[in-house]
């Protein structure tokens, strides 16, 4: 594409005849000094394909949401979110919804504390080869398929430690999956906190814990929040690591950490859709709809929270 530079230098007022002699086959400009027909066609075709691709990405998304809503809405009853599932497929999804919320809260507490602390260490203290070893270990863990974690959780926690299907086994398995995301986003956010903040805190003689709590971690809050939200989204949507660790029950989740299975929404979708009874099938569609709505709420909430935390940290 070196040629158009020379051609493009032709004064704007120059008539077609100036260029007439230069224009041969494969010329990059046409008689009027515009890009040649071939170049304009390529440009049009290229952008057309890109626009088409952009549009095509929207098709499956809208189709999925429409398909789920189309199956769930016609027979929707509000009792779906107030009653627990019965063994005949009647009732609703209250126990699954509560179980999913408990799992989310547990992941925020367990994976949140480990992940944030780990991110702090990686950003503030981890140097050299130890740091890169810890970082790559965390990244590799994030890449392990969730079903493999579910298998190990089942073998090690449910059977090995005799916890049976339980909240503790499910939470630990889900935390293995989510800690790397929280640690990474915390680390990245803390690295972006200006060194001057730390030097200022040091000059004021602030203890290190106070510096962390009131200065660096507070400034990194938007990043930490993003990591936590990703973890919440994962605990909302994952099935494979929970099937063999959380088990399933028709009862509302209790307080015991072990020896008590927990119901959750994705289980209902996965198990009920090919049951012979239409009551179960309808519950499956309802669960899918509730999941999609929760994802939507989560995305909206995350935008609000990130906007709020950003404002908060900037005003400081």
């Amino acid at each position: 594409m070196g040629a158009p530079g020379a051609d493009g230098a032709v004064p704007a007022g120059a008539g077609p005849d100036v260029l007439l002699g230069e224009g041969g086959p494969g010329a990059t400009l046409d008689l009027y000094g515009r890009p040649s027909w071939a170049r304009r066609t390529a440009s049009l075709a290229g952008w057309g394909a890109c626009m088409l691709a952009t549009g095509l990405i929207g098709v499956p998304l809208i189709w999925v949401i429409y398909g789920v809503a189309g199956r769930a809405v016609p027979h929707w009853h509000w009792s779906v979110i107030t009653e627990t599932t019965t063994s005949t497929g009647g009732g609703g999804l209250a126990n699954e919804i509560a179980g999913t919320l408990v799992l989310m809260a547990g992941v925020v507490v367990l994976a949140g504390s480990v992940g944030v602390l780990s991110g702090v260490y990686l950003a503030e203290y981890a140097k050299g080869s130890l740091g890169s070893l810890l970082r790559s270990g965390s990244e590799v863990l994030a890449g392990i398929p969730s079903i493999v974690l579910g298998y190990v959780g089942y073998i090690a926690l449910v059977i090995g430690l005799h916890w049976q299907f339980s909240l503790a086994a499910a939470l630990i398995t889900l935390s293995l999956l989510t800690v790397p995301y929280i640690a990474k986003s915390t680390e990245v956010a803390m690295r972006q906190v200006p060194t001057a903040y730390r030097e200022g805190a040091d000059a004021l003689g602030l203890p290190e814990l106070t510096t962390l709590r009131r200065v660096t971690l507070e400034a990194a809050l938007p990043g930490v929040t993003t990591g936590l939200l990703v973890a919440i989204a994962i605990s909302l949507g994952e099935t494979a690591p929970l099937l063999y660790t959380a088990g399933f029950t028709d009862n509302m989740p209790g307080l015991s950490l072990t020896h008590a299975p927990v119901g959750y929404l994705t289980y209902a979708v996965w198990t009920f859709y090919n049951q012979p009874s239409t009551a179960f099938q309808n519950l499956s569609y309802d669960a899918a709809l509730v999941l999609v709505v929760l994802v939507l709420l989560l995305i909206i909430a995350s935008r609000l929270i990130v906007a709020l935390t950003q404002k908060h940290t900037e005003s400081n």
């Binding site: 990405i57 499956p60 998304l61 189709w63 999925v64 398909g67 789920v68 989204a233 909302l236 949507g237 994952e238 099935t239 494979a240 994705t266 979708v269 996965w270 859709y273 499956s284 569609y285 899918a288 999941l291 999609v292 994802v295 939507l296 989560l298 995305i299």
Partner: peptide, 15 residues
């Protein structure tokens, strides 16, 4: 993209 990434795997399976 955020929505597409957030929709659970089982919902895609159901669809």
């Amino acid at each position: 993209l955020e929505l597409l990434a957030g929709i659970p795997s089982v919902v895609f399976g159901l669809w």
